[in-house]
Amino acid sequence: MVAEVMGASEIGQRLSELDGWVLANGAITRTVEMRGFPDAITLVDRVAVVAEELDHHPDMDIRWRTVTFSCVTHSAGGVTARDFRLATRIDEIIKGFTGGN
């Protein structure tokens, strides 16, 4: 079953419920700065475990201590509820590192 692509208004409303996520290049995206490179790698490792659990994988870009996550359901051709579930889990992991920042 293919996930249903969300419309712009629904995406905007759902983004308002998340911390730091924006719509960019057809995906929901968040950038976070960690204390250092080892923390950035640990963050990515923890997100990888969740991504496997959900069978939905974000694009991740690591630049020294800055990590950018982009979530889009490629098979559906846009942003779906699966992306927001993953983004919510990523936020939970980030809060574990930063205390909510």
Results as ranks from 00 to 15, higher is better:
E17R: 13
Q13K: 11
D55M: 01
D19A: 11
T88S: 14
N25G: 06
H56F: 04
G100H: 06
L23M: 13
I41M: 11
I94P: 07
P38T: 12
V47P: 10
L18G: 05
F97M: 06
D59L: 08
H56T: 03
T88E: 15
R30H: 03
M60T: 15
V67W: 09
F84H: 03
R14F: 01
L23A: 09
R30S: 03
S16A: 06
E92H: 13
G36S: 13
T80P: 10
V50L: 09
F97R: 05
S16D: 04
T68F: 07
T29G: 00
E53I: 03
L18C: 01
C71W: 06
E10Y: 10
R30M: 01
V50M: 13
T98D: 04
E53K: 11
A8K: 15
M1I: 09
E53P: 08
F37I: 09
E17N: 07
V47Y: 05
A40Y: 05
V72P: 00
W64N: 04
T42V: 11
G100W: 06
K95F: 14
I90F: 12
V50D: 07
A27V: 01
V44D: 05
T68W: 00
F69I: 05
R46H: 08
H74R: 10
D59E: 12
F69H: 07
T88D: 14
